[in-house]
Simulated assay, not measured.
Amino acid sequence: MIITSWRLLFPINGVNLCTSFYYRRLATTQESISKLKRNIEKNILPPKPKKPLNVFMQYFLSMKDKLHKEYPNCTQQDLVKKVAKQWAHVEPTVKQNLQKQYMEQHSVYKQKLMDYKNSITDDQQMLIKKELVKKEHALEKSQVKQKLAELGKPKRPLTAFILFVQDNKMSKDSHVSQQDWLSNLGKEWKNLTMEAKSKYITDAAQLSEKYKVEIKKWEENMIREGHQDLLKSTLKSKHDVDIDKHKK
């Protein structure tokens, strides 16, 4: 699903979009989805068994305390570099013992991981899938919104009430919270006479008409440039298809 989405957002043959850019953004998105999945699993499932440390890291930990005493002012990164130099001269028998220890730990890890996967219930898997679909659509929506802004999509016009709020923003008391201030303005707006509201209603109507002209012109331009898949009607139908697939 996510690959299809990015083909829609960044068509390989699209205007001014090169192939390398497409694949770079696609890789970033796949990483984002993988991260989303891991975060969802953390919230739903018990912790996964941890992989054993590799042979070098086990050796590093065995030397760490000694090195800290010898080089108290060294950073962790510097200590790793020092151990890396020593590692090349470590006796083969020491490396073999560490390798044997690692293989034993890895064997235990594999069994724990298998038991862990077998313990995941169908309900948990279904819940993960549902949450992932929701997060994917939220991510896609955010990416589409960003892309539309880059392509110069006209902003929606302000409503009459928002124009009224803008007219009164200079009178806001700094001691009153934003929420309370807006709530009070809402009550004030509700009690305004139609005559007092008419200016804002007229201005909002004019902005709306201007927006209709601009959005139509922009959509026509998007179609000419090969970005018709970004238009709202197309995205909506795609979203519905994805939801239907998930339900099945």
Rank of each mutant, 00 (worst) to 15 (best):
K217G: 01
Q166S: 05
N13M: 07
Q99P: 00
E195K: 15
I40M: 01
S171K: 15
Q125K: 12
K95N: 05
K248V: 12
K248F: 03
K212L: 07
T75A: 04
K48C: 11
K210H: 06
E188L: 14
M57Q: 04
E195V: 15
V144A: 00
A204F: 01
A160D: 10
D229G: 12
E136N: 10
G14P: 01
L182Y: 06
L8P: 00
K51A: 10
Q125D: 13
L151I: 01
D203Y: 10
D244V: 09
K141N: 11
Q179F: 03
Q178W: 09
N13I: 08
S177N: 07
C74Q: 04
D167K: 12
E136K: 13
K238R: 14
T75F: 00
Q58I: 03
H227S: 02
K210D: 08
T28W: 10
E209K: 14
K110A: 11
S119R: 10
H68D: 08
N54P: 02
K82L: 10
G14V: 01
N168C: 08
V176H: 01
S171E: 13
K37Y: 07
Q111S: 14
K130D: 05
A138E: 10
K245C: 08
T121S: 15
I223V: 14
Q178A: 05
Q99K: 14
I215E: 00
Q124A: 02
D240C: 00
L67A: 07
S34A: 13
Y102T: 07
N168G: 00
K82C: 02
I128N: 06
E195P: 01
W6A: 02
I120Y: 06
H246E: 08
P52E: 00
R25F: 04
Q166I: 04
A204N: 03
V165S: 05
K95E: 07
L235R: 11
T234P: 00
D203T: 14
K42D: 04
E31I: 14
D244L: 09
V241C: 03
P92V: 09
E104A: 12
K236P: 00
S62Y: 06
V80H: 12
P72D: 03
Y23H: 12
A84E: 14
I223Q: 08
